[in-house]
Structure formats: C-alpha cells, structure tokens
Amino acid sequence: MMLEIEKINVYYGAIHALTDISYNVKEGEIVALIGANGAGKSTSLKTLSGILHPMNGSIRFLEEEISTKAAEDIVSKGIIHVPEGRKIFAPLTVMENLEMGAYLQNDKDQIACDIRGVFERFPRLKERQNQLGGTLSGGEQQMLAIARGLMARPKLMLLDEPSMGLAPVLVEQIFEIIQEINKQGTSILLVEQNAKMALSIANRAYVLETGSIVLEGDAKEVMENSSVIQAYLGG
C-alpha cells in the first residue's frame, strides 16, 4: 500500500471537519475523492500534505508514519499537493514558479531536464516562461500548477479540483494530462466537484459527506450507485 489513512480526525478549532476517515491509495492508481461543497475534500488533502495535522489516527506513506511531519518534510518523501485555486506565485515568472516546484531537488542537470520535460508536455508554458505567473490565464495557471508539482518528482500527486473554472475543452485536456502523468508512474489522489469526469478516469473512488466517507468502491460501481447519480452526477 502506498498511502494508508486510518481513522483520522481533523479539527479547525472547535469545528470537527473530518470524522474517523480511512482510505488508501495503491501504487499506480488514480483514486477520486468526491463530495459536495464543504464535505472536507480539501481538508483531507491539506492533512496529507502536512498543512493540517490530525488529532488522532494514522497516515502512513510507504510504510512510514507522516501524520505529525511538517509540510516541507512530506514533500521530500514524495507527496506533492497541487492546491485548490492553483496558488501560483503571482510575482514570480513561470520559470521561477517551476524552480520553486523543484526546491528540494539538488541536481541542476536533472532540474533542467525536468523543465524540458514539462515544457514538452505544456508547450504553452514554454512560450510564456518569462511572464509573471499572475498574468497567466486560468487554464495556463492550472497547467503551471500541475507542472510545478511535477518538478518535485512526486510519487504521489494530490490534485485539488484541477478542473475548477475551466472551459470543457480545457477540462478534457487537463484530465488527459492527469492520465498521462499517472501512466508514467505517479499515483494520483484526485479531488473533484466534476464527479463524472473524475470517476471516468479513476480506478477507485471515495464519496465524502460532511466529514465522513459514506461510500467507497471501484469507480465504475460508484458511478452506477443511485445516490451518487442523484447527488453528484445530475441524474
């Protein structure tokens, strides 16, 4: 098992945001985490990446307990979190944003090679490498956010609503890219409002409702579940 979360509870002060949540991601999988607004999807990812810490329970990544580790140490273990809303460093150029993604990489040649790699995947970013991150369009920013995440050479990528605010064509493009990244060996935990899209590319899925997991299974099964169809797939 690559990532194993067991019975974690997360609080924001008095607000109990996640209650006894358990889920896992296996090597090479795409796992979707779906749920309504405020269900606790982003909170789950923030807990994995060490921005938040669970009150109790365990988070094990590659057989190592990481629930008390600081965010910067978790990156070095091989988990990268591409946050909701892209969070591009607006005053830094596209190139500098990518370099920040590679902050913990020390091999200069390898970084240069990785930058060439992401430019091949995202030719748009290559054209705009000297432009300030804040001046990119929403779609370009999303690509930069993913590209910046790839620069950390992650084993597991946490993606929080990569399709948010994008036109359908772009959404499809982004999802194709996610599948490609996965094929090249990066496991993916995907949080999405766009449940249909997410389930169509995922191996397995978890449904989150007000801080608890109410359903889990193969993506196909989840997609055919009547309550999911009603709640998230507009059926």
């Binding site: 990446s49 060490g50 921005i51 600081a70 965010a71 910067e72 990156v75 070095s76 990268i80 979190h81 946050p83 969070k87 460093f89 607006a90 005053p91 830094l92 500098e96 370099e99 920040m100 993604g101 902050y103 913990l104 910046r148 950390a152």
Partner: peptide, 20 residues
C-alpha cells in the same frame, strides 16, 4: 531569493513546495 519572494507572497503554498 526566489524562495523569499515565494514565501512573501504565499507562505502555505511555499511550504507545499518544500520551502521551509
């Protein structure tokens, strides 16, 4: 220096990049 600018702009996201 780039990390300084990143941290100045957005601390939580800078941490997500592994910047202390």
């Amino acid at each position: 220096g780039k990390a300084m600018r990143a941290v100045a702009y957005d601390k939580p996201t800078a941490r997500l990049m592994g910047i202390n």
